[in-house]
């Protein structure tokens, strides 16, 4: 691993009000590739960070429609086209008996879309390594510290300027650069 490969800069805070303020200032300073790490969900943090709503629902609705269509085709083609067989005097195909399967097929693909879409396309889980844990203070984000991290990938990132900026945030401590 290269010596000078830097993942980004972090700053630790002691309370949720401080991190809300910090997140807002980082966003207003023009950074876009930054993240917050907290021991518990902090209300309004997503607004403070300026996070947009997930695109996942649009992916999921496509899965739902696909499930509905496939379920419809499956029942119509097997029952009324490929292998015609009258069962219990019912029509070869009717929406009445198709509906439960349509519902199930739609829900199945919706659930698949939601779970695998979330994992594969959107949130990057499962993740076995995260550079943020190269700093000793990061172990406390499951306990009593709130962290802001700004990635080196951010176009505005500059090792000295960004650390100085983080240092200037109210309540910031343990500001440091971390290796990737």
């Amino acid at each position: 691993m290269a010596e000078n490969k830097i993942y980004g800069a972090i700053a630790a805070f002691k309370s949720d009000t401080e991190i809300l303020e910090a997140a807002r200032k980082v966003r207003l300073a023009g950074y876009s590739k930054f993240d917050c790490h907290t021991p518990f969900p902090v209300h309004h943090l997503d607004q403070a960070m300026g996070m947009k709503r997930s695109k996942l629902p649009y992916f999921i609705i496509c899965c739902t429609i696909a499930g509905f269509t496939l379920g419809l085709l499956l029942q119509w083609w097997t029952g009324a086209v490929d292998y015609k067989l009258v069962i219990g005097g019912k029509p070869l195909f009717a929406l009445e008996f198709a509906t439960p399967i349509l519902f199930e097929a739609s829900v199945l693909l919706t659930a698949f879309g939601a779970v695998f879409g979330m994992l594969g396309l959107f949130n990057g889980l499962p993740m076995f390594y995260h550079p943020i844990f190269n700093a000793e203070i990061s172990k406390r984000i499951t306990d009593d510290r709130f962290l802001v991290s700004i990635e080196a990938k951010d176009p505005q990132f500059d090792a000295t300027k960004t650390t100085e900026f983080l240092q200037s945030l109210p309540g910031a401590e343990e500001v440091q650069l971390i290796e990737a």
Partner: peptide, 12 residues
């Protein structure tokens, strides 16, 4: 509503 209709339709 559908459950009611469906069961009645199926049992006939």
């Amino acid at each position: 509503a559908f459950s009611q209709y469906f069961l009645i339709w199926y049992a006939n």
